[in-house]
Simulated scan of single mutants.
Amino acid sequence: MLAQVADDFLPEPMSHGPEPGHIVMDINLLSVLVAAVVAFIASAGWYAALGDAMVRHQRAWRGAEPAEAPRASQMLVFLGVAVAVSLAVAVVLDLAGVDEWLAGAGWGLLLWAGFVLTQWVSATAGEDVPVPLAAIHAGDWLVRLVAAGAIIGAWP
C-alpha cells in the first residue's frame, strides 16, 4: 500500500526500474560534491563575516563565551554535513525533474523556507533565541541551500 501511495505522490518524469515501484535516481555525484564544497566555503565565509555579531548575541542571550576556532575534526563534520545536505537537495531535484539552475535555486529557497526558516521562527518563539542570532544562522542556510540547488540544477 505504501508503494502505491508513493507512486501516486511522486511526480513524472521519473525513471522506473525494471520492476514496478522501483525508482532509479539520476544524480550527478560530482555536482553534489561541488555543491557541498561551495556550501562549506560559503558557510565559512558567512561566519567569518558575521562571527563577531553572532558571539555578541550569544553572550547577551545566554552568556556563552565564543568557541575556539574549529578543530580539523569539526571541519570534517561540517564538510560531511554539507555533503549530506547537497545529496538530499539532489534527490529532491531529481524527483522533481529539475534540470536548470534557476529552478534548482527556487527549490533550494523552498526547502529553506519549509525547513530552516520555520525551525528558526519556532526557536525564536519557543526558546527565546534572539531574532538577530536566528537570522545569522538562517541566512547561512539560505545561502547553502540556494547555492546547492542552483549548482545541482545546472549540472544534472
Score class of each variant (00 low, 15 high):
M1S: 14
L2G: 13
L2Q: 08
A3V: 11
Q4T: 13
Q4E: 13
V5E: 06
D8W: 10
D8T: 02
F9R: 12
F9P: 02
P11S: 05
P13L: 08
G17R: 08
P20S: 14
P20T: 05
G21Y: 14
I23H: 14
I23P: 00
L30F: 09
S31Q: 09
V37H: 02
V38Y: 07
A39W: 03
F40I: 00
A42Y: 10
S43E: 10
G45M: 11
G45W: 05
W46C: 02
W46M: 03
W46I: 02
A49L: 15
L50D: 07
L50E: 04
G51T: 01
G51Y: 11
R56P: 00
R56H: 03
R62N: 08
G63R: 10
E65G: 01
A67G: 04
E68A: 13
E68Y: 00
A72G: 00
S73I: 03
M75D: 00
G80L: 03
V81L: 03
L87E: 03
V91Y: 06
V91I: 15
L93A: 05
D94W: 06
L95T: 07
L95F: 08
V98F: 05
V98Q: 09
D99H: 14
E100H: 12
W101M: 07
L102E: 11
G104N: 12
G104S: 12
G108D: 14
L109V: 13
L110Y: 12
L111W: 14
W112E: 10
W112S: 04
W112I: 05
A113Y: 05
F115H: 01
F115I: 09
V116Y: 09
V116I: 12
V116N: 08
T118V: 13
Q119A: 13
W120K: 10
W120E: 11
A123F: 10
D128A: 11
V129N: 08
V129C: 05
L133Q: 09
A134Y: 07
A135C: 01
A135G: 06
A135T: 07
I136G: 04
G139C: 09
G139D: 11
L142V: 05
V143Y: 08
A147H: 04
A154Y: 07
P156C: 03
